[in-house]
């Protein structure tokens, strides 16, 4: 089974998702995806609030791949991205190759977040902001730390208000394929 099929199975993706993409993730692709998303949600008559949540999660998800994804080794290990509409929810799912040494920390982080309730997620978000408001030592900053506040996954969870579904599939001695999915409940924001 391909990683795309694995991801579809992990998140119960429908036969015809709104967006299904496999290939290189670039800033241009991200902007195109977000533009397509806005047009689709507009056609669906979806609330601006839900569209913004989806927009936000997709941005964080794809920029994470752009920032942390490993160089692709072949067609099968290309990044994948799916946006799907299901009965009561929208699903955002992605897959990308990852340096295996990153797996334990990432797994721990996602497990930690999944164990949190809504209040704890908000507090975690606030704590990171507090930490980042300290005086930063510019000489110690890396390109990644300069452009990331360590908030990506917390932000995705805040917007989603649901838990992450994820899986790691060993690809090679040094790399693993990381599958991630999260949903936005359609009904939560009906007013």
């Amino acid at each position: 089974m391909s990683y795309l099929e694995d991801l579809k199975s992990l998140m119960n993706i429908s036969a015809t998702p709104i967006i299904e993409y496999r290939g290189e993730i670039t800033q241009k692709i991200i902007l195109q995806t977000l533009s397509d998303l806005e047009k689709t949600m507009d056609k669906l008559g979806e609330k601006l609030k839900i569209t913004r949540k989806a927009f936000n999660i997709i941005t964080e998800c794809l920029q994470n791949i752009l920032r942390y994804g490993e160089k692709v080794e072949n067609e099968e290990t290309n990044p994948i991205f799916i946006f799907d509409q299901q009965e009561n929810r929208y699903v955002i799912a992605s897959g990308n190759l990852l340096d295996k040494t990153r797996q334990p920390k990432l797994q721990m982080r996602l497990d930690e977040l999944n164990a949190m309730d809504w209040y704890a997620v908000q507090e975690a978000y606030k704590e990171v902001i507090k930490y980042n408001l300290r005086d930063r030592d510019k000489t110690q900053e890396t390109e990644k730390s300069r452009n990331s506040a360590g908030l990506g996954f917390i932000e995705m969870m805040r917007k989603s208000e649901q838990r992450f579904v994820f899986s790691f599939k060993e690809w090679s001695e040094n790399t693993t394929y990381f599958l991630l999915g999260i949903a936005i409940d359609k009904d939560k924001d009906k007013s």
């Binding site: 936000n56 964080e60 902001i129 980042n132 408001l133 930063r136 990331s148 506040a149 990506g152």
Partner: peptide, 16 residues
């Protein structure tokens, strides 16, 4: 209207 988490660091620098 919206910003990504990557916008947080420069914003925090401005507030500091």
């Amino acid at each position: 209207t919206y910003f990504n988490t990557g916008t947080n660091p420069p914003l925090m620098t401005i507030f500091k």
